[in-house]
Structures are given as structure tokens and as C-alpha cells.
Design a protein around this nucleic acid. Structure first.
Lengths: 375, 375
DNA sequence: GTAGAGTGTGGGAGCGCTCCCACGGAAGGC
DNA sequence: GCCTTCCGTGGGAGCGCTCCCACACTCTAC
């Protein structure tokens, strides 16, 4: 414990061995290879900026991080040096000391993936990314496809590798929200588990959209308006059903169980439900479907049964997905502002991270009825 | 420069000021807030593991990184200590010294986004993510929507913040591939710019798929097979056209310019092209469309023109997107294995990163004809 | 004049890791 | 017997930052 006078090759540029490993290395090993691209000139460090600007490291750091307690003169010198050297702060070094990672994760349980109305995922991402573009937050994407990966995620989050989490999840019993809750990591959900969701969330006004749709049908003179619901363990599906009910009741119509067909957001589910509804209530003249995909299924059954849409039976879907534009006739549908949901989620999360805050936020975004041919 | 005996509050737990900022802070500032969640017990460090296992830091590091030069006894002691403490290596610290980030970026020029056949993006992500799940690579998502963001990306990559890049890009003149080339950062493209693509890439056998489709039409007895192409500045679109041509020629049919309608992968483009084709060649009895969306447009025009599909005119699309399943009649289409493309891209990239290699790889994945009602 | 309260600044210490040198002990060669 | 190798190992140094203390230095009071 004493030969401290011996220093290695160089003070600043540790020589890494360039020896190549045996051609392929052992397969399956974690394959450590001396990393360090042969890349060109080394990246300038904060210290070099300080030297060039003729100030201390502290001052450069203050300038870079926008601290107000820096003289105008020093600030200018530093900024000039930064520009000259093309300095970019090293994120890892910063993270190491602040334990702030400047990145957030978008977590998607892949099971849900199949229920997404099609451009959903891209739209969410697009919104999130747009909001993040102004900051220097990184977006990490994490798909969780099974229990093992859920555990990995848990370890991952515990290891504080992100500053916050956006979770796209809708199922009542998804374990992920609770995980986030117990980890006390800033997070925002797309959708919510129920009325009492304790986490921050953003969702579309499902009930309002459904109400609009059904009002539209009633206004058109429909007398027997049926509905095909989504899986009722999803809050969104429940809300759409209750919107349907509200619209009927406000029009003084009775809510009849017989007119409610349980679906599951799939096309086949839509077909099944439609068949049952037709059997129970052959006189129905309108169907509000809780998703476009189910509506597409319903459309097929209606046509097979010889009903003309919209003349005999008017049909409305939900999501305004691509499917809506390609059915025949094209579907009238309720649009959710998905990209804006993404943007809002990101914004809320950034706020929550910034204020270290316990304050939960919830935002409901308006939906909109897009009228096409089917109603 | 001498009072080195003074240490701060504690050796291990630097006290950060907990003072709150004035409620909202100045809007627009870079809003630095002392980061550090009130989180519970501190994460164990490698040093603590070493202490518990009764070995040195070096040995723990070797075990964690799978070095073979560790005695069985030491390895066991270390692993036990790791398990007991729940140790997870600090990524930032590791990155700081290795300048390896263990993360890769999926870069998507958002302009292209609109051309994606719908589940494309999710499928790519799903594949990439599946492949990465086994490693401890992180997936960063970067959408690039304009010149400014392209520059930011460039700075980002120069700053070595990822070990490699997956680029979803197809346009001939996209500047991003060249950027990657000049940065010499490991990267893999989805699709390629042309035959001579110097970067690694994965793409579907577009020509082969088109050939299959056209052969299918000819086998059904079609005599006048037209095609609606994609934008020909995209290699994929060109390949589909040349597959069409090949199939005709191998059947001894002439390739006729008149039967080629230029499209742009949009529905409106499909409609336009179909109208022109019908005008030029009213006798055509089949159309191979380079995308499902264009096929959907073509279908509308054909119906409006009183042509029955498939009886009068057979139609085949490309992509096997959701659209294909919802048109009337449902579209026969060429399926690309998109998720597998994602998986393959990730795999190639990992290889390229591991071997620091200059070796470029290119993989072509087979396509498949999905026969439905339209042909 | 001196005490007191700022305000800008430099730079030590330390974040948690990997790298690599040096060392002790076991195994082999003469 | 001694001199080499060869392994497994401990631990110093250092990656590039931020934090914070201490030191000028300037004002304002008394």
C-alpha cells in the first residue's frame, strides 16, 4: 500500500490493450471486448473548456447548467470556449454524481399491444417524442411480454435507471401500475384502472365520446339502439358503455340489458355479439360499437343478414382507426386525440419529475365524432 | 490548497440541500432541481459486495463481467454476496469508464412514418425488443421530424451516447444513412438505399414477393396484368416493380409501360393510378398493387367502374396490413415478416457492436403470399 | 475605521465503476 | 536446490462530472 508514485502510461489517455480476442470468443459468454471505438479526436471535457475560458471547473459547470450566479463576463468566455471546442457534457459522468438519468421509459405490456386500435402505438410515441424533443430527455422503450420481463423491469426501475415512467396499460388487474406506485417513481398512465386511480394519468373522454355517438344515432331517428361493449375489466370499455347509457337516459329512453352485447375489442367478438343481438332484437336499427374493429365484424354480420347500413341499421365505431376508413360503408367513429395524449403524458411526467412532486395529475382529453357513411 | 483533512458531513452519504424552490420556478429556465428521490435504502455498491464476500473490488468486477480468471471459490462468495445485497451494477459508473453505453437507438424519420403499412412500426419494435430482451441493452427511440432534429441527432450520435443505431429509412436521398456512415457507428438499416448499400441492412424480398403475386395472377388465367407502383425513389418500390416485370417475362409476356401506373403508397394515389389504368387499358383483368393501401383505393375505383373483384379484375396488394383484412373483398396480399426484420436487425447490430467490426451484413427475408378473396 | 452581509469564483472530494500494475503463491524447468 | 512462468488477486488511479466549502472581493451599514 505505498507505491503511489507509479503512474501508468499517460495521465489522460489510458492505453487500452488493442489485442484482439481469439477470432470468435467463447459463444454465450458475456463477450467483453475492450470497448473504445477507434474514433477520432477525443471529446473535450469540462476541464478543457475551463482551461480555454480561463476559469475554473465550477464556473463552467454553472454556466452549462444555467445557474444565475455567474458573471456576465465569465459566462461569455465559457460559452465561447464551449462553441470553439464543440463541448458536449458527458451524460454518464453527470448521472454518476446527480443520479439523475435524464431519461424516461415508455413501458408497454405487449399483451395489450393486440388491443391497440392501429395507429395507436405510433401516435402515442409520436406525441411523447414531440414533447420530449425540446428537452434533452431520452426516451427508452420497454416492452414487457411476460412475468420474467416484468421482474426484470422491476429490477430495472429499482436500479433507478430512469427518472420517470410512462405506462400504456389499461387492464384492471395489470400489476405494473401498483409496481410503479410502490416504487414511488414519477409516472403517468395512458388510461386508468378505475375512478380512484392514484397515479397520474391521461385518458380520452370515453364516456363523452360514446354519449355523442349515441346522441347522433338518436337524432337520426333511430329507435332501437344497441351497443357492443369492450371487455369490461377495462375502464375505457366501461366508460363507453356508461356513455351509451347516459345518452339513452337523457333522451328518456330506457336502458335495456337486451340491447347490450358483450364484446372483447376483436373482430370475431364483434361478429358474435352482433349475431346475438340480431337474434334477440331483430328490430334494432342502430349499433354503437366500442371499437372500430368490432364494428367491422358487426358490419359483416349485418350484411350477411341482409341489413343495409346505414339505411336499415346505423353503425358507429370507436377509435377512428384506419379500419374505420376502409370498411364498406366507411365507419362513423369516435376519434380520440391519441397523439395529444402522448404529448400530455410526457408533459405531465416532466412536471412531476421536475417538482419531485407527490402531486398527482389527471387529464381527460375531449373526443370527437367523425361522421362517415355508416351513420 | 491544503486543508485536505476536512471532510464533509458523512463519508458515504453526501447531504443534499432539501430546500424547495419558489413554487413554480421561472418558466422556461432549464429548471435544475436538486435531484435525488427520497428513495429508501441506498443501492449497494460493488465495494460493499466485495467487503461482504471478503474479496477485493477487482474480483467482484471480474465475476460480474464474467471474466474466466476467477477461482471457483471466489466466484461463489461473490455471487452469494450479490444475491444477499441485491446488487445491481451502476450503469453510469460503468459507462463513464468504458465509454460503452449498453444502449442502442432506433431512429425513425417521422416523415416516413406515414408510409408505414400499419402495424409496421409496432412490429419492428416488437421484434427489436424481443431480441434485446435477452441482453441488457437498452432501446432508445428517436424520432426525427425535421432538419433541426436531424442536427440534434447528429450531435447526439457524435457524443457517443449509443453503441449502435437501427435506422428505419427507405428513401433514396435520406441523409441519415450517410451520417451514420461517416460517424462510423455500428448501424443496421431496415431496407436499403440501393443495390450497393454499404451499411448493414435487413429487408424483405420485395422482388420475390411481387413475382409470387404476379405468378399467382397469371396462373389464375389473367391476361392483362397491370401494376400500381410505389414511389420509385424507394428501393422497395423499385424492387416490387422489377418483380412484376420478372414474373411477366418468365411467363413469356411482354412488359408494357401502359400497364404500369405510378402510385405513391397512398390511397388517393391508388385511386388515381387505377383510374388512369382503366382509361388506358379498359380490358385489364388484374392489378398488382405495391401496397395494400393503394389496393384499397384501386378497389374503390374498380367498384365505381362497375368491375367486380375478383371476377372481372383480380387485385393483389402488398404488406398484408390490417387494411388488407378489412377491404371488401378482403385483399390477397404479400406478407413481409416485419417482426422478424426487427429481430434480425437487432441481432446483426449486436454482432457488429460486439466485434467492433467493419464487416457489413445484409439479410434478405422471404415474403409470402396470403391468399384472400380479391385474387 | 471595523464588522457584517452579500456575490462570484476555484478547486477538493467523491459518485461507482473498470483497468491495469504489482504481488504472493503454486507449478514447472533446470 | 533456485529461477521462471503462470494464475488469481488486491487495490490505486482515474473516467468527467457536480457539489459544496472556503476564499477573495465588493458593498452597505455602524
Amino acid at each position: 500500500m505505498s507505491q503511489s508514485a507509479q503512474r501508468p502510461t499517460g495521465p489522460n489517455r489510458p492505453q487500452r490493450s488493442q489485442s484482439l480476442q481469439s477470432s470468435q470468443g467463447e459463444p454465450g459468454g458475456s463477450g467483453r471486448v475492450s470497448a473504445r471505438t477507434a474514433a477520432g479526436s477525443a471529446r473535450p471535457t469540462l476541464e478543457e473548456v475551463a482551461a480555454l475560458a480561463g476559469v475554473g471547473r465550477g464556473t463552467v459547470s454553472r454556466v452549462v447548467n444555467g445557474s444565475p450566479r455567474v458573471s456576465e463576463k465569465a459566462r461569455e468566455a465559457v460559452n465561447a470556449a464551449i462553441a470553439e471546442l464543440g463541448y458536449v457534457p458527458n451524460r454518464a459522468a453527470r448521472t454518476l454524481v446527480t443520479s439523475r438519468t435524464d431519461s424516461i421509459a415508455l413501458v408497454v405490456p405487449e399483451a395489450e399491444t393486440r388491443l391497440f386500435s392501429e395507429p395507436y402505438f405510433s401516435d402515442i410515441i409520436s406525441g411523447v417524442s414531440a414533447e420530449l424533443a425540446e428537452t434533452d430527455m431520452q426516451l427508452l422503450l420497454i416492452l414487457v411480454r411476460n412475468q420474467r420481463e416484468r421482474e426484470r423491469l422491476s429490477a430495472y426501475l429499482t436500479a433507478q435507471r430512469v427518472d420517470g415512467v410512462l405506462l400504456v396499460s389499461v387492464h384492471q388487474d395489470d400489476p405494473l401500475p401498483s409496481l410503479l406506485e410502490s416504487l414511488e417513481i414519477p409516472s403517468v398512465l395512458a388510461g386508468r384502472r378505475g375512478d380512484l386511480e392514484p397515479l397520474s394519468y391521461v385518458h380520452a373522454d370515453n364516456a363523452g365520446g360514446a354519449r355523442m355517438a349515441v346522441r347522433h344515432l338518436l337524432r337520426r331517428g333511430c329507435e332501437e339502439v344497441a351497443t357492443i361493449t369492450g371487455p369490461l375489466d377495462m375502464e375505457g370499455a366501461r366508460a363507453r358503455l356508461s356513455g351509451y347509457r347516459q345518452a339513452l337516459e337523457e333522451a328518456g329512453r330506457p336502458y335495456q340489458e337486451e340491447l347490450v352485447g358483450p364484446g372483447d375489442f376483436t373482430e370475431e367478438g364483434g361478429r358474435l355479439a352482433m349475431r346475438e343481438l340480431l337474434e334477440r332484437r331483430p328490430g334494432l336499427d342502430a349499433v354503437f360499437c366500442a371499437s372500430d374493429v368490432m364494428a367491422a365484424g358487426a358490419l359483416q354480420v349485418l350484411r350477411a343478414a341482409g341489413r343495409r347500413v346505414p339505411d336499415d341499421v346505423a353503425v358507429i365505431g370507436f377509435d377512428d382507426s384506419i379500419v374505420a376508413r376502409h370498411t364498406d360503408p366507411a365507419l362513423t367513429s369516435v376519434r380520440q386525440p391519441i397523439e395529444e395524449m402522448g404529448r400530455t403524458m410526457a408533459r405531465l411526467l416532466l412536471e412531476e419529475i421536475a417538482e419531485q412532486g407527490r402531486a398527482r395529475r389527471q387529464v381527460v382529453l375531449a373526443t370527437e365524432l367523425v361522421v362517415r357513411e355508416s351513420a
